[in-house]
């Protein structure tokens, strides 16, 4: 049939599209498969919450901090191990522990394709870098 090449071309295109991850991965063997190593703070051993919780829900925690601190004026957070922290992303998180935003936050966000949150528009990191976001 005259339309067979056309159909097969379309089918090939479709297969090519749905197998993007496979051939993309195969072409670019150098690309890191695993999540980039997180630069851990030198002096601190323990985050405000268990690492597994932070990995999945740090934004929830930060949002919660935000609401409590900005709206209710509750600025202190008692962590699971009894330590008390300021609900202050700049002081508590970025200057004390995760001094390099690029290495800590963005790397992982880039890896997981999580769009940058707008936090950095206002909250300062130590380098005060601002990635222009559309």
């Amino acid at each position: 049939m005259s339309d067979r090449p056309l159909i097969l071309a379309g089918l090939t295109l479709f297969v090519g599209l749905v197998t993007t991850p496979i051939w993309h991965g195969a072409l670019d063997r150098k690309a890191a498969l695993t999540a980039p190593p997180i630069q851990l703070p030198a002096q601190e051993k323990q985050c405000v919450a268990p690492a597994s919780y932070m990995r999945s829900s740090h934004m929830q925690l930060l949002e919660h901090w935000r609401d409590e601190a900005a709206r209710d004026g509750r600025r202190q957070f008692v962590a699971f191990n009894g330590k008390i922290y300021d609900k202050n992303p700049t002081r508590t998180c970025v200057t004390q522990c995760h001094t390099d935003r690029k290495e800590f936050c963005e790397r992982c966000h880039d890896y997981a394709g999580v769009s940058d949150p707008d936090c950095w528009n206002c909250h300062n990191d130590s380098q005060r870098t601002s990635r222009s976001a559309p």
Partner: peptide, 17 residues
């Protein structure tokens, strides 16, 4: 909630066999 980075790692692993 789940750990997105770990999920991606898993998904990428699947993709490259």
């Amino acid at each position: 909630r789940v750990d997105v980075a770990a999920i991606k790692q898993f998904a990428l692993g699947l993709a490259v066999f």
